[in-house]
Simulated assay, not measured.
Amino acid sequence: MNINGWIVYNGHLPGTKFADFAEWLQCAAFKQNIDIKLYKNNELLAYLGNDNHALLGDQLSLPDFVIFTDKDIYLARQLESLGIRVFNSSKAIEVSDDKIATYQALAEQHLPIPKTIIAPKIFPSTTVIDHTFTQHAIKKLGFPMVLKEAFGSFGEQVYLVHNQEQMLNKIKEIIGKPFLFQEFISSSYGRDIRIHVVGDTVVASMIRNASNDFRANVTAGGTMEPYEPSEAEKELAIAATKVIGADFTGVDLLFGPNNNSLICEINSNAHIRNIYECTKVNVADYIINYIINTFRKDQRHLL
């Protein structure tokens, strides 16, 4: 198919995993004879003026589509304003990146999540905190309890507290940042399911286990093995993907009481090397095929 694209990733994050994700997608595109270029987000500057808005960069020729593997929603939004189809959309990235917004969107559609209380906004300069709201959280959720910052990746910025003292100390540490209180799902301690969804299809899944941490993230030391999700788990992961309006996601499910699944997180830019090493399924191939089919459908609608 005669389309061309870009893959955008963050140019300032340390390590190679972010470029690695982009390169996997690029290789999958090349296999389909699609011309696709890699760009760091700092190579594409959004320009705004009274008479124009554009991208600043060296010899740029705008593509038909962009696969956006970063969380730079302002750049993603700028690309969309220029008429470029962005996978995933800036809105999907924005909701996925904000755990509070994610849980609100899921709750509005009555999808199963752990009981959650959103902490009130506290400005960084606040010196005296009225802890009445923490008493409500304790009464409703009890201990142990999970505190989550709204923004964070790879299981970081997620904390398990066992008593009021630990809770208050953690709040002091993260004051000024949006966060939430959440019930601790003991039946899922150190284990969860990662399901990769592309379009309306579950394409790969694994179970993650950690022996010495309540979080199951592989980056934090967890192990992984292939997993065949039930139809209910597949439907839940697909529904979660649709709620945030994403084209592809990595959905994390917890093992709730009585084997009922709970949605823990929706990742709009879930990395795919681990799932490949675990299952030998290359999610990048499915993403590229999805993009090709999207453009084919658009062409048919124009006929």
Rank of each mutant, 00 (worst) to 15 (best):
L75H: 05
A54K: 03
I7G: 03
C278W: 00
A92H: 04
K71D: 09
K172P: 02
Q299K: 13
I67P: 00
S90H: 13
N289A: 04
Y47K: 12
M145D: 01
N259W: 05
T223G: 08
I84D: 02
N217I: 08
L111R: 09
G5K: 08
N274H: 03
Y189C: 06
I129D: 04
G83Y: 05
T132K: 10
A237H: 05
L48F: 13
A107E: 12
T134E: 14
A29M: 09
G221F: 07
I129F: 10
I93P: 08
I244H: 06
I266S: 00
Q59W: 06
A284Y: 03
F87S: 02
A22L: 05
E277R: 11
Y159C: 10
T69V: 09
A137Q: 09
I73C: 04
N260W: 04
N52M: 13
D97E: 11
E108Y: 09
T16H: 13
N42W: 05
D58K: 15
I275H: 07
N293G: 03
I287Y: 03
E183A: 14
V198T: 01
Q109F: 03
V86K: 01
E23I: 13
R194Y: 08
H301N: 13
K148G: 00
P14W: 03
D98C: 07
S268M: 04
L303M: 10
V202D: 14
T69E: 10
L302A: 10
N88Q: 08
A119L: 10
K71S: 14
S153A: 12
I272S: 08
D20M: 12
A101W: 09
I129C: 07
L106M: 15
D64Q: 08
I138P: 01
S268N: 11
N33F: 12
E23L: 12
Y286Q: 08
C278V: 06
A92G: 15
I129T: 03
A105Q: 05
L111I: 07
D192R: 03
P144N: 10
L106F: 14
F154L: 10
R300M: 15
I193S: 00
K280A: 13
